[in-house]
Amino acid sequence: MTSISVKKPIIFQNIPCTLVTGFLGAGKTTVINELLATKPSDERWALLINEFGHIGIDGSLVASSQDNNFEQQKIAIREVSGGCICCTSQLPLQIAISRLLSEHNPQRLLIEPTGLAHPRELINQLGAPHWQTALKMQAVITVLSGSHWQQEKYRNQDGFQAHVRDADALVINRYAQLQDTDKQALIAWITNLNSYVTIIWAPDEQATADIQSAYLLRLNDQLNNASQIISKQRKINITHTQKSVMGLQPPRAAKSMSPLSDSSAESDSDQHDTDIDQPYRYHEKQQDILLAGWRLPAHYKLDAHELQNWLLKLPNWLRIKGVVNTTDGWLQINFTPDSLTTKTASVQVDSRIEMILQLDEDAAKEEVDIELKPELSATSINWNTCDQELMAMVV
């Protein structure tokens, strides 16, 4: 008889894993890039990015900020778009992490959830017993914008506060406008929510090389500090379950979804680079926000000045980001209401723009298609007109 060899499943154990969280527009991508810059050249790292919208852009923003390509740097990136990986079942998270680990065998994993996520949900998942031998959870690094904190609408919002409550280390940026009394008030506010958190003040661009170096060293230290937040959650989970602790194994198959289908967290960016006809646009309502995005062929070159003016005139936007081929070359676009940033980017496979817009209360409560009843939206956007205006910028 012919013997049949059976390939043993891969068992992952004690891979250091760091969550980098923060409210929408806090500056997580910057911190991710700073962490990647500290990677030893001989180590393999992996980065899992979760985006709420259907068009993966954050991976391009990270890639464009690196001097060399990721293959040379031994960094693997996986994007999960179309919803929050922590909002439904554990399957999307398990599939995404399993693929990264099995395909790239990294020595460290970084996870960046969407800024609209509630960090406690993800911490609950990663604190489950079946993750305990697979991942060695390090300090949860949370990014907080000082300019956001100054605004009462953020400061008093539970979703904003949640990121501080569930942090092991808090990186505070964009605080140049804060007076000493403001900083003291900020520290008191943080301490009231989380008295055990480590506070790290991010230096500005004018800081000396010594200050920058000291900051990066302290930030890098968090990669090797065990997470007290997740450790506590694991103890809670263990007392509430009788399931045996098992090593994480790669799934047999994963379901991929069309970007225009239901925005489940199971959607994966592997397929959206190959089977979408361009130019492409989507938009959809989720709770009290409106998501929209475009993908354009790489050879479409847009007028840089007109594009930025057009984006800024969109009503009620909370976040705009993109990597676009323009008359000024390839540009990263990263807009929040208190920070407008454009940077030179490397050449991409296509241009991508994505935005999050705030709906008014009446529109948010209505369970209807905004395409059919646009008057319910505070934005009142005619998407066909937007398409025409965008195409008119192609030179």
Rank of each mutant, 00 (worst) to 15 (best):
Y175I: 04
I187N: 10
H148M: 06
Q228D: 11
R165M: 14
D168I: 07
Q212L: 11
L216S: 13
A254F: 05
K255N: 11
S213A: 15
I190K: 02
V143N: 00
K183H: 04
P203S: 10
Q138C: 09
L186T: 15
A128K: 05
N225H: 11
A128G: 07
K153W: 02
L248Q: 05
G247A: 10
R218Q: 15
L135I: 08
Q184I: 14
I187E: 08
D166Y: 14
M137Q: 15
D210H: 09
L248F: 04
R234N: 07
E152P: 07
S244Y: 02
A254L: 06
K243C: 08
T241C: 04
L248E: 04
Y175F: 11
E152D: 14
Q138D: 03
Q206G: 06
D182S: 14
D204P: 08
D180K: 15
T208E: 08
F160D: 03
A185E: 11
W189V: 09
N220F: 05
V171R: 01
N224G: 08
I229P: 00
R165T: 10
T142E: 00
L186S: 13
D166M: 09
V143F: 00
Q184K: 11
S145L: 01
K136G: 06
A226C: 12
A207I: 10
I199R: 04
Q179L: 13
L178N: 11
Y215L: 12
Q157L: 11
V171K: 04
Y196T: 14
L135V: 05
W189R: 09
L144V: 07
Q150E: 11
M246F: 11
I236C: 14
Q249V: 12
W131K: 08
E152S: 13
S227Q: 03
I236G: 10
M137V: 08
M137F: 02
A207S: 13
L144C: 05
I229F: 01
Y215K: 10
S256V: 13
I211M: 15
A139V: 06
T241H: 08
M137H: 09
D168G: 05
K255V: 09
T181I: 10
L178W: 02
Q179T: 12
Q242A: 06
N192Y: 02
